[in-house]
């Protein structure tokens, strides 16, 4: 096992005043992996992702993304990551094409590159009938895929997805995950947070977070085996306590 590390943290911590949102998190995520982060709302998943993307400064500990230190080299990191937040973050009053061209341009892509990526994206996501529609009028599942496409326009080796499927119907979620599988096949790394336990089953490895700390980590089958449960859902409830899971189904 001599695999390339994409995301690495050592005792990474973030405090907001006295509240410790992320408390000494140490992880290694390898190239080509789908690494899932499970946890109730407020467990610290989003704060962790925001630190890794350079949106928040850590209060303590170390971290690197694509080999670059998160405290010093956030400019370098930004060129190599794609980010999709839990809030739908494309421009609702721009058309699909306009969104794609804008995101391509702020990553400094040339016009021909954008056009080429756009074509790929259109066939991949099935956007054809929607190209000149306002983004706000798209079905939610399509929006989600478009957001993922926009986050990947510059072909980043690492993707951070913060609850990308919240609010999407099960069928669309399934489609979305198929897309993620295709993506990691090309050697990309995906770092994803979720509170849907069924999605955890699709990850290569998951870690379970509670109150800022990682309390369990391993492949879904390992976790089920060591806790003697049949689903990740049951593992999660055994570890965190069922009343704390806040599922927005």
């Amino acid at each position: 096992m001599n695999r390339q590390i994409s995301v690495y943290t050592d005792q990474l911590t973030r405090r907001f005043g006295k509240f410790v949102a992320v408390d000494g998190v140490s992880i290694s995520v390898y190239r080509g992996e789908i690494f899932g982060f499970l946890g109730a709302n407020g467990a610290g998943k989003t704060t962790l992702i925001r630190m890794l993307c350079g949106l928040l400064k850590p209060s303590g500990g170390e971290g690197s993304v694509a080999g670059f230190d998160i405290k010093e080299k956030s400019e370098q990191i930004k060129k190599r990551i794609g980010y999709m937040s839990q809030r739908f973050s494309l421009y609702a009053d721009l058309t699909v094409t306009e969104n794609i061209h804008f995101y391509g341009a702020i990553y400094g892509l040339a016009k021909e590159e954008i056009r080429q990526r756009e074509e790929e994206l259109v066939s991949q996501v099935g956007l054809d009938p929607y190209m000149n529609q306002m983004t706000k009028d798209l079905p939610l599942g399509i929006k989600q895929r478009l957001a993922l496409g926009c986050a990947m326009l510059h072909n980043p080796p690492i993707l951070f997805l913060d609850e990308p499927t919240s609010g999407v119907d099960p069928q669309a979620r399934r489609g979305f995950w198929n897309l993620l599988y295709e993506t990691v096949q090309t050697g990309k790394t995906i770092f994803v947070t979720t509170h849907y336990m069924d999605e955890a089953e699709y990850c290569h490895r998951v870690s379970i977070m509670d109150q800022g700390k990682i309390i369990e980590m391993g492949s879904p089958s390992q976790l089920k085996e060591s806790h003697k449960k049949s689903t990740i859902q049951d593992v999660f409830i055994a570890l965190v306590g069922g009343e704390k899971t806040d599922q927005k189904e």
Partner: peptide
Amino acid sequence: ETGTMEQILVSPV
């Protein structure tokens, strides 16, 4: 308000 600011801030802009 809509969260797009965050989205463009993770870009190199």
